[in-house]
């Protein structure tokens, strides 16, 4: 079952296109990261997914229900934290949660207390939100997004305003949540390391369009490049270049990054060994999400590339 399905979603603000013909599917249980630079259309997409912004065209389906046709039922098991968390400052954290989650029964209260406990704010739930720090509000927003029993949680910059301890705490919390598979997490974040650590799938938006989408492992392991550690790396690099059909780069740690174009990894290994080099390590190279993201978003703006 798909937790999120977006079909040809489009939104314009005046002449500016914020999101254009966006198609996206997120299966239940995935931890999905939506990446993109500022103004790429992430927040607009999330707001359209929650019915806060009306699309000019396209369909949003959440938990197999059409948001436009069945608004309440589509959002029944959806929790969200959009941009900065907003609460009534003159009410207590507990009252805010009860009011905004529209729930007051005892099972709800138990879950609320246990989530607050897990995020370290249980002892402050009785205080007015006006006295909370930004980090505490962020955590309260996280608790709210999981109430009363969310199966799809949409989080826009969930670690915004948190100190390093808070970031680690929230990241672990989300990791645990994602690992259970009971909840689908849809994260939008600038914090690429965060998405890399907890995400299973991602999409990259640029100028309102999806420019990459798929499993995190597939995207970061393109399969065309290996990292080779040999004795005499300088000579080995020249040897490989002499074979032709390869791009060889020397990394700062002394290893070589070789693009595989006309031979596979085992043949490359055999050639090096036959030439008398001691191959200490040969492994598929995994780009970091940051490298991947920067390469992708920079090349998408290259005017020489076809659209």
């Amino acid at each position: 079952m798909n937790a999120v399905e977006l079909f040809s979603l489009t939104k314009r603000f005046g002449r500016r296109v914020a999101v254009e013909a966006l198609d996206l599917r997120v299966a239940e249980g995935q931890v999905f990261g939506l990446l993109g630079r500022n103004g790429a259309g992430k927040s607009t997409t999330i707001k359209m997914m929650l019915g806060l912004v009306h699309p000019d065209a396209g369909v949003v389906r959440l938990m197999e229900r059409d948001l436009a046709a069945e608004h309440d039922r589509a959002l029944e098991h959806v929790g969200a934290l959009v941009e900065r968390p907003a609460f009534y400052p003159y009410l207590t954290g507990r009252k805010n949660l009860e009011l905004l989650a529209r729930c007051g029964h005892s099972a709800f209260r138990q879950r609320m207390e246990s989530l607050a406990e897990r995020l370290g704010i249980a002892d402050r739930l009785g205080d007015r939100v006006g006295t909370y720090s930004q980090g505490m509000r962020q955590k309260l927003g996280l608790v709210l997004s999981l109430l009363p029993d969310s199966r799809l949680v949409i989080l826009d910059e969930p670690t915004n305003g948190l100190d390093p301890h808070g970031i680690r705490e929230v990241r672990r919390f989300l990791q645990e949540l994602g690992r259970t598979g009971d909840v689908t997490l849809f994260l939008s974040s600038h914090w690429l390391a965060e998405v890399e650590q907890i995400g299973t799938h991602l999409a990259v938006l640029e100028l309102g369009r999806v420019i990459a989408c798929g499993g995190l492992k597939d995207l970061l392991h393109p399969g065309g490049e290996v990292e080779v550690r040999v004795d005499r790396p300088g000579e080995a690099a020249k040897f490989l270049e002499g074979l032709g059909g390869h791009r060889v780069k020397s990394a700062s740690d002394g290893s070589l990054r070789v693009s595989l174009e006309e031979m596979d990894a085992s043949e490359l290994n055999a050639r090096l060994v036959a030439a008398g080099y001691r191959v200490q390590e040969l492994r598929p190279r995994r780009a970091t999400l940051e490298e991947y993201f920067l390469n992708l978003t920079e090349s998408s703006l290259d005017p020489n590339l076809p659209n």
């Binding site: 929650l50 019915g51 968390p85």
Partner: peptide, 8 residues
């Protein structure tokens, strides 16, 4: 925003 992102 918090209110309308709910099933209401």
């Amino acid at each position: 925003r918090s209110m309308l992102a709910r099933p209401v």
